[in-house]
Structure formats: C-alpha cells, structure tokens
Design a protein around this nucleic acid. Structure first.
Length: 472
RNA sequence: GGCGACGUAGCCAAGUGGUUAAGGCAGGGCUCUGCAAAAGCCCGAUCCCCAGUUCGAUUCUGGGCGUCGCCUCCA
C-alpha cells in the first residue's frame, strides 16, 4: 500500500510522492511566540509530529522547517507595554515552546527559523513582487495586489466576490487599493522602533507582514517548491492563500504540492478553543491537574483523526491515559517474560503480524491513527489473555513486541518518564510490604489507601509490588 | 449573507452499498486475588429525521432538524 494524503487543494486523498526521490521537503507553520500556547496549538504540532514520523517510517529523509514568528502586532504591543524589546519579550515563550514540545515528545524539525533573522530574504522577495507588478507601495507600507493574481482564492475555495464586504474595510487602519489586498511590509511606526521591530529596506524602513515570512523562509530553506506544507485549518484563509499568491507570483513556480490542514480542538461544549473566546487550556493546566503529558500526547494525536474536530473532555483524556497505561503494561509484561519456557499460540502470532499490517495500512491512509489503534488494541487484549494463560512463547513475544515497536514509532509513549518516589512514599510501601508479610492486612490496606489518596496506586503481583501514579 | 464540515452505543471514535457496524473509556456481573489493583470473560447501537435511487443504504442523492467552522488576528 502506498501513502495517501488528503490535499486541501484538490479536496481529495492523493498518492504521495516527493519531488526528489527519498527526500521530503516539509514546511509547517509554527507558533507566534507572544503568549503561552494552548492545547489546540499543540494538537497541530503533534499532527506535524505524526506526519514526520510516518514519513520516516516510510523511509523518507526529512527536510522539515517550522517557522517561529517573533515579530507581529501583538508581540510589538506586548513588548512595548512591558517596556522591553521584542527579542527579550519573546525569549521566554520561545523557550517554553521547546520545553512543551519535549514534554509531548514531538520530534524536532531540522530548522526552526526566526522571522527576525530572515528579514533580508523577505525584503528580497517583496522587491521581486514590486518588480513584477504584483505589489505596490502605499503610504503606510507595501501591499500585494490581489487583482493581479487570478488564482487567488482557489486553495481556500473562497470567491473574492463572496467575501463579506464592509467589516474589513471599516476596521482597517491601512490605506490600500483594494480592501482584500494584504500587507507585505509595514512602514515603521515609533512604537516599532522602540521595541526593535524595524529594518531598513529599499522601499522604506519597516517590518514584514506575517504572510511573507513563511514564503521567504520556506523558500530559503527548501527551495521554490515544497512537497508538503501543513498547518491548522484556521490558517487556510487568508494566510496560506496569501502565501500561494505571493510565492507563485514571485517565482512563477508551483509553491506547494500537498497542502495538509489539521482541525481544531474545541472545549467541552464544542466551541473552538481560542484566546479571544477565553476558553483555552494549556499543557501546564493539564499536567497540574495530574495528567501525564504522554496521555495528552495520545489524546491529541490519536483520539480522533487529524481532520476532524477534537473535543477536550476529562473523560477523553482519562481514556487516553488508560490507553497509554495498557500499552506500557503489555510492553512490560512481554519484556519481563522469560523466553523459551512456554509454547506459542500460533493464532496470536498471526494476529500480531496481521495487526501490524493493518496498523500501517491505516497510517498510510491519510494518517488514520485512530483506526490503526483499533487494530492494535484488539491484539493487546488477546495478548493479555494469552499471557494469563501462559501461551506466549518466544515467537509470539517477538511478534507482539514488534507490533508495539511499530506503534511506538508514532505514539512514542512506551519510554516511561522517570517518575521518582520520595523517601517517605518509598518507606510507606516498604512498611506495607512488612505488614503484608506479617499478615496484618488491616494495616497494609490502611497504608494502601493512604498512598491512593496521594496519587499512588499499588498492584501486588507475583514479582512483587508495583506502583504507579494516577491522575489527581 | 456567502462557502464548508459534521451528526455512529452513557462518553470518545473508526468504518462499510449486502455475511456478526472496529477499538478505547465509563458502568454492571463473573474469574483471579488475603482484600484490592492489573488482566481476562460476559453484557450495550431504531448508525439524527423524512423522501428518493437500488434487489438491498448507516454508507449514494435531495430535503429537514441540530451542532460547529471559515469569510477578521487565530494552530
């Protein structure tokens, strides 16, 4: 089976094949570092992670670029209010972003270019657009002339005549030929100078518009044509539409071969999570509530297909946490199995291999991880039953571990986080063991309840006591 | 107003023109256990409504109802 991906431009799943054999040029829209990202942002970033990992599973080398927008209106305003430059203002958010990516185990892209470090590339691109007549200078900046690009609106399927008239014109502070023309360059205002957000350019000192940043950096690192450009659906219009217009107008080449868009996360009522609505939940909120980042990872990545909306609820998060635990526990059981002592269940061996094929096939079908996990958990159940019955031998063990390894190439939840117990908790567990050996079960149970209240659950097994942390 | 998506068991969710509509969570019963936990077994669906196409539709078409998104900064 070949990898098929849903391309927004065609509206269909298309067979994926990179321009250059074996190498994928991937550009993904990264964060604007003006504030703490919320879970919705991370869903998108984990979608990128899933895409990356599956491309790697399919043998492609990756050239993945993810921009970091460190200059824009909000950053300038916030920095000014805080009385610092934009670099100082954005630094903590940039650092927090990478910390969160690590906590969620998102693989690193090959490049994370900062917008402020690629202004010359943007200036050159704007100059090119001016030369070719696709852009014009106005009093307050340089604009892209949408009327000069007939294909405008094709990607997002928006008819320009259908754009709601009025709103944008009435509120826009900038002067331009047409209401829908967008800024490539904004002339420096005093506030920009104060926070260090102004650069020299042939067409006047100023700062880049948001859209031009992605085109310039994508082309700087990956060339004029990208295999895949991905982002959240809310970027489809106008951001990606604008990127296509300015990039293709400048180069005359096709900018993107595959457009991939991931859906939103909504709150428990079904409304889109966004800063303006004020219903955002951050990763920190969830970890503070006792959720394992790996459960959050599985929830964001695998609870629903990336093109359908994901509703954040406690039940769904708990379900994800349980799935992580079940996978980890099965892996532990299999690793701890003494090889060679038991006979194999032939059917289970076949099931494990079949499930692995079905899993990979689901991933090849537009990254359908939820469907793939369905195949996997069916075998998880059978594997546990076989382990209970002592019917897992060397071959079955290998096949099952191979299946888990395959799944973990995407999920990456089997490496346990190092969670430590303090001496007091350790002491309590030892004390309970002593009580149990003395058959003082009342005392043992009391200690167990005590630990449960502190978020530690004990399991007595043949190999001795196991403990794990639980939510809250 | 324009464009679009979705509506599958208590919750999340995959999927298909036709033998039993994946899987997870939650819940109930049971096995195992000192008791638990874990694990396993058993238990759950008029596939939003109506009409049409078809030998046959949850799956296709049309209409309705509902939810949501984009058209403005937004992952």
């Amino acid at each position: 089976m070949t990898l098929r991906l849903h391309d927004t431009a065609s509206g269909r799943k298309e067979e994926f094949c990179p321009l250059e054999p074996g190498v994928v040029r991937l550009y993904t829209c990264g964060p604007t570092v003006w504030n703490t990202p919320h879970i919705g942002n991370y869903r998108t970033f984990l979608f990128f992670d899933l895409l990356r990992r599956h491309l790697a599973v399919r043998g492609y080398r990756l050239r993945h670029v993810m921009n970091i927008t460190d200059v824009d209106d909000r950053i300038i305003e916030q920095a000014h209010t805080a009385g610092v430059g934009i670099d100082a203002y954005t630094r903590p958010y940039r650092e927090a972003f990478f910390e969160d990516l690590d906590a969620l185990r998102a693989q690193r892209a090959e490049h994370y270019p900062l917008a402020t470090e690629h202004v010359p590339e943007m200036v050159r691109l704007i100059a090119r657009l001016l030369d070719r007549g696709y852009a014009y200078e106005a009093e307050d900046g340089v604009y892209f002339r949408i009327a000069s690009f007939p294909a405008y609106g094709r990607l997002s399927r928006l008819d320009r005549s259908g754009l709601r008239p009025g709103a944008r014109v009435a509120t826009d502070r900038y002067e331009k030929e047409s209401a829908t023309d967008f800024a490539l360059w904004k002339r420096a205002q005093p506030i920009d100078e104060q926070v260090g957000a102004a650069w020299d350019a042939p067409f006047g000192r100023g700062r880049p518009g948001w859209h031009i940043e992605c085109s310039a950096m994508a082309m700087a690192y990956l060339g004029e044509t990208l295999d895949i450009h991905a982002g959240g659906v809310d970027l489809l219009f106008p951001h990606h539409e604008n990127e296509v217009a300015q990039s293709e107008a400048a180069t005359g080449e096709r900018f993107v071969r595959f457009w991939l868009h991931s859906e939103h996360v909504s709150d428990s009522t079904g409304e889109k999570m966004s800063k303006s609505v004020g219903n955002i939940v951050t990763l920190r909120d969830l970890t503070a509530a006792g959720y394992d980042p790996l459960a959050v990872r599985l929830f964001l990545m695998g609870n629903a297909h990336y093109r359908s909306r994901l509703r954040l609820t406690e039940e769904a998060l708990h379900a994800a946490a349980e799935q992580v635990r079940r996978l980890q526990d099965l892996a532990d059981r299999l690793r701890g199995l003494e090889p060679g002592l038991r006979s194999d269940d032939a059917a289970l061996y076949a099931d494990a291999l079949d499930a692995r094929d079905a899993y990979l096939e689901a991933l090849d079908d537009d990254l359908n991880l939820p469907a793939g996990l369905g195949h996997v958990f069916e075998v998880v159940r059978r594997a546990n039953a076989a382990l209970d019955a002592g019917r897992v031998g060397p071959a079955g063990r290998e096949a099952l571990l191979h299946l888990l390894e395959t799944v973990d190439a995407h999920l990456d939840v089997l490496r346990r986080r190092d969670v430590e117990l303090d001496d007091e908790l350790r002491g309590l567990i030892a004390e309970r063991e002593q009580a149990r050996r003395a058959r003082d079960f009342a005392r043992a149970d009391r200690i167990r309840d005590q630990l449960r209240d502190r978020g530690i659950v004990l399991e007595d097994t043949r190999q001795g006591v196991r403990w794990r942390r639980v939510e809250r």
